[in-house]
Write a protein that binds this DNA or RNA. Structure first.
Lengths: 219, 219
DNA sequence: CCCGAACTCATCCTTGCGGATGAGCCGCAA
DNA sequence: TTGCGGCTCATCCGCAAGGATGAGTTCGGG
């Protein structure tokens, strides 16, 4: 049986060592490389062709875990990325999943669960931490009693702006539409791009369409 | 019975007069206004609230017939735009329809056909000149023997570029992707925007998604 | 009562984008 | 041969778009 090649990405060496030590005890898993930044992760993935990548989200540098995940998945759709983080909040779950992560685990996971997740990921299957899973189910069910929407991270106003971006509007048009100063619009857009880890309005528009925020009109 | 209110848009006064004279002989149709430019058309539509707009495509000025059509349909989806033109070529059919025109007529149409088209349009139904209709059917059937695609006006290369725009790529990334100079990419994009009557890459991306040029990935 | 989050707006600065124009190359058809 | 359309690229210009920062507002919760 072929071993599952794993790439570890975490900015803390001690974490990598710990995980590596554990994984090496398993017969069917081998750690082929480590990276301590998003940029390195992309390069290493390129070079070492791992099957599965364990990606930490919290990392310094230009390319964070989410951006790195997106990058890698773009270049190599066959590689599966498991996101490992201590964030139990909502905010990073969806961006990570959208960036192409197959599983989203919390750092206090049991070792054997990690191994299980890696094996599943290699098969293209997902394992979500139960706490994470429940949040997702909640969202997908549309259980948003108050004002929570599927894009929890985005505020109502930002959502308004995003919709207009996705309609191809310019900042000036958006400002007029929402009765705002153009400055405000730019601020919102800046925040949207930051939150969604995108580079420009065009990507935001694409994102909106992919997510179905904008409904396709009759055609 | 309420009369159908019509707005005439054509840069030639003589044409407007001719059409108006004819339409005024009809009991159920009334010309409520005329406009000689795209800009005027938008304003006049706003003010006079016509049911149907007869729009000439060939007009000078910043806002041509297609852009005006798009604008009006955006502001007032309930107004129906009939495009009247002497272009029997493909190039303007699809842009016009995409911009929201319900019917596409050629200028050598018989008067009673025009009247019929207006009445149909008021009901939200389309009438296409048979020559136009056959082109459309051809396209929809995918009868593209050689390299003709549903977006006849766009060349292969432009299509390549459009797809990348719709993926959220920057000019530099597109250039790298297609192994081109950035200058060339910009030229292509300029041509794409011109041909599709769009303002910027974001609108192009939106357009691409609306048209289904980009396939929605799994989500 | 204070804190944080959302929302608003402004200023400064940099650069990517888009428009206009000109130009050379290739292949195909008249 | 000439011409045209697609493709390629360059230069110049103006502006919209984004990033970085700071700051004032309201509102609801602790």
């Amino acid at each position: 049986m072929k071993k599952i090649k794993v790439l570890l990405v975490d900015d803390h060496k001690i974490v990598r060592q710990g995980v590596r030590a554990y994984l090496q005890t398993l017969a069917d898993i081998t750690v082929v490389a480590e990276a301590d930044s998003g940029t390195e992760a992309v390069i290493s993935a390129e070079k070492n062709r791992p099957h599965v990548i364990l990606m930490d989200l919290e990392m310094p540098g230009e390319l964070d875990g989410i951006a790195a995940t997106r990058q890698i998945r773009k270049n190599h759709p066959e590689m599966q990325v498991i996101v490992v983080t201590s964030h139990h909040q909502d905010e990073y779950i969806f961006p990570a999943v959208r960036a192409g992560a197959i599983s989203y685990l919390l750092k206090d996971i049991e070792p054997d669960e990690l191994a299980a997740a890696i094996r599943k990921a290699a098969q293209g299957e997902a394992i979500l931490d139960s706490r994470v899973a429940s949040r997702i189910v909640q969202e997908l069910q549309g259980i948003r009693k108050n004002e929570v929407n599927p894009f929890t991270q985005l505020s109502e106003r930002e959502f308004d702006v995003l919709r207009l971006i996705a309609a191809g509007k310019s900042n000036a048009e958006i400002a007029e539409s929402l009765v705002l100063g153009e400055s405000t619009v730019k601020t919102h857009i800046g925040n949207i791009l930051k939150k969604l880890h995108l580079d420009d309005r065009t990507q935001a528009a694409v994102y909106a369409w992919q997510q179905g925020i904008v409904r396709r009109t009759k055609n």
